[in-house]
Computed example of a mutant assay.
Amino acid sequence: MPTRTQIPAKRVTSAREVLALNMIRLRAERGWSQEALAFEAELHRTFIAHVERQVRNISLDNVERIAKAFQVPIAELLTPELLEA
């Protein structure tokens, strides 16, 4: 199982940022492009790019689609990663 990238909690300031950082991390762990994620989630590539840049407000339905594409619980997309002490 791949090692999870740790995100310092102090850097995270919003739910959009948490979601974006987790999407970027999960894509990197899988070696997926934004286009590959978009295909798996049945969303448009530019939508994925906008969410990752935090310029797009995303619905819960689309969060669910992204979680299903990654095969992770929705909570994993919305939970900040903490640095290990």
Results as ranks from 00 to 15, higher is better:
23 M>P: 06
54 Q>K: 13
71 Q>S: 15
76 E>H: 02
36 A>R: 13
54 Q>G: 07
50 H>Q: 11
75 A>M: 03
70 F>M: 10
47 F>D: 05
22 N>Y: 11
28 A>Q: 06
49 A>S: 14
55 V>H: 05
13 T>M: 14
69 A>R: 06
39 F>K: 09
32 W>F: 10
62 N>D: 12
81 E>Y: 03
22 N>Q: 14
60 L>G: 15
69 A>Q: 10
53 R>V: 03
17 E>S: 11
67 A>R: 01
37 L>Y: 08
78 L>G: 02
19 L>A: 12
40 E>N: 06
67 A>L: 02
49 A>N: 10
44 H>F: 10
37 L>K: 07
23 M>T: 15
25 R>M: 14
49 A>C: 03
36 A>F: 03
55 V>A: 09
75 A>D: 00
80 P>S: 00
84 E>Y: 02
24 I>M: 11
8 P>S: 09
82 L>D: 03
7 I>E: 10
19 L>N: 10
67 A>W: 07
42 E>V: 10
17 E>W: 08
63 V>D: 02
6 Q>K: 12
25 R>F: 05
79 T>L: 02
43 L>V: 10
53 R>K: 13
59 S>I: 02
41 A>W: 04
24 I>H: 10
19 L>R: 13
32 W>G: 05
21 L>V: 15
57 N>C: 09
31 G>A: 01
68 K>L: 07
61 D>N: 10
10 K>C: 15
68 K>G: 03
52 E>G: 07
66 I>V: 14
77 L>W: 01
77 L>S: 00
71 Q>F: 02
71 Q>P: 01
29 E>P: 08
67 A>K: 06
6 Q>F: 03
84 E>H: 09
72 V>T: 08
67 A>I: 04
48 I>L: 01
67 A>M: 04
43 L>W: 04
2 P>S: 11
61 D>W: 09
3 T>N: 13
63 V>A: 04
1 M>A: 09
57 N>Q: 13
79 T>K: 02
11 R>M: 12
25 R>P: 04
44 H>K: 11
11 R>L: 14
50 H>N: 06
32 W>C: 09
7 I>D: 12
48 I>P: 01
40 E>S: 09
56 R>S: 10
40 E>F: 04
74 I>E: 07
41 A>Q: 08
79 T>Y: 02
83 L>Y: 00
22 N>W: 14
39 F>N: 11
6 Q>P: 04
11 R>E: 14
53 R>F: 01
71 Q>L: 05
